[in-house]
Simulated scan of single mutants.
Amino acid sequence: MNSNKINYADITISAVSPSQYPKEGLPEIVLAGRSNVGKSSFINTMVNRKKLARTSGKPGKTRTLNFFNIENELFFVDVPGYGYAKASNAEQEKWGRMMEDYFSTREELVLGILLVDFRHEPSEHDRLMYDFYKHFDVPVFIVATKSDKIKKAKYNKHESIIRKALDIDPDDKFFTFSSFTKEGRNEIWEAIAAHLQKDERT
């Protein structure tokens, strides 16, 4: 896939149960992160679209698993953002069950991307999400968003804070990313392509 010229990207379905998941059998890459971490901006930047994934002024708006078909080669799966204080316990339990159903049963799931805010130490929710990926044996990329807000001289310091807080496995890839400057976009696509090729061989 030529990441610089993506001709097709569209949302296929917003699913709440396994019966609604796409049937194409394409590899799926899950995107998880706090409600305000910039997942929609990440998706739009990665596929060179402005409004494929809707950015919202209201955190926690995503209530479903949103499947985005990219070039009929893979799906980005945007899962509900976590850490949104106004979500009720019942809503959070519902999200949790939906996530567990997906992670525990979906054979097409080949990679997880955990988005964290590069400016801040990861939250307890971030750590739990990282552990969630590990529990289900899902390979993980860490993507630190909003890198344009940090001076280059402080990159190592912020990366070190994130690695320590999440207790990141040394083998897990770490990227800095900015939807404003597109920093990290090409590197992430290259790593995704390499991972998919590796997955095909195993």
Rank of each mutant, 00 (worst) to 15 (best):
T176Y: 09
L31Q: 05
T45H: 11
R106C: 09
W95H: 13
L52D: 07
K39S: 11
L74P: 03
A85T: 07
D10F: 10
L115P: 09
N72W: 00
K94H: 13
F76M: 05
L52C: 07
E121N: 14
L65G: 10
G25D: 03
D78K: 01
E93L: 07
N7C: 07
V140N: 12
K182H: 14
Q197Y: 12
I113F: 11
A90N: 05
R97W: 06
S19N: 12
T64F: 10
L26M: 04
D10A: 12
R63W: 03
A53K: 01
R119V: 06
K149W: 10
G83Q: 00
N69F: 06
L111V: 03
P80C: 01
P59A: 05
P122I: 01
S147W: 03
L65D: 08
N36W: 04
D10C: 09
I11D: 06
E108N: 13
F175P: 09
D199G: 08
D126C: 07
L65Q: 07
L115H: 09
T62R: 04
R106S: 13
H120P: 01
K61T: 14
L128W: 10
P22A: 05
E91H: 02
P122W: 08
A144T: 02
A165Q: 14
I70P: 06
I13K: 07
D10N: 14
A90C: 00
V37E: 07
